[in-house]
């Protein structure tokens, strides 16, 4: 299985309090910068959440912002962003408010070819120790080190 390597420029850490729309824009920014996705892709993610609710929350404290390939993906990629402050999402239909601090922005070119990226993401999320360390990371440098030293 080919192992997906996370681009160092796609690892970010922020200590400002932001709302969920800002968090999604920030998490997509490295992918926009390197030309992997268009600005419309970031807008589509926000629009989808407005319509479908916070479907991007995939584990406690972890969000996987993504939209469809046809929403503006040029090449596959992942950007991982840690927010030091909780990012609050609108309540779902059960009325439960949700928050996340680790954002893994995913750009997939089609539904089959990004399995190795998802495998990588699955490995991170299933590693509670890594997620806890990321939640406690105190700088961009520390976030990068945690991900680079992770065996997953």
């Amino acid at each position: 299985m080919s192992d997906y390597q996370l681009d160092e420029n796609c690892i970010q850490w922020f200590n400002e309090k932001v709302n969920w729309q800002e968090a999604i824009a920030l998490s997509a920014a490295p992918l926009i910068k390197k030309g992997a996705v268009t600005r419309e892709y970031a807008e589509a993610m926000v629009e989808n959440i407005n319509q479908l609710g916070p479907y991007i929350l995939i584990a406690p404290n972890v969000a996987l912002p993504h939209a469809r390939p046809e929403n503006g993906v040029k090449e596959a990629g992942i950007a991982l962003t840690v927010f030091q402050e909780d990012v609050e999402f609108p309540a779902d239909s059960s009325g439960e408010e949700k928050q996340a601090r680790v954002f893994i922005c995913l750009a997939a070119v089609d539904s089959e070819s990004h399995l190795n990226m998802l495998q990588k993401i699955s490995g991170w999320i299933d590693n509670q120790g890594l997620i806890n360390s990321l939640l406690n990371a105190a700088s961009q440098e520390e976030t990068k080190q945690l991900l680079q030293s992770s065996k997953n």
């Binding site: 989808n48 479908l52 609710g53 479907y55 991007i56 995939i58 996987l64 993504h66 939209a67 469809r68 995913l106 997939a108 539904s111 990004h114 399995l115 998802l118 495998q119 993401i121 699955s122 999320i125």
Partner: peptide
């Protein structure tokens, strides 16, 4: 099942 059909739902399928 997820919103798009290839993000979290594929992750869940792998698990």
């Amino acid at each position: 099942v997820c919103g798009m059909g290839f993000g979290s739902s594929l992750l869940l399928k792998m698990t």
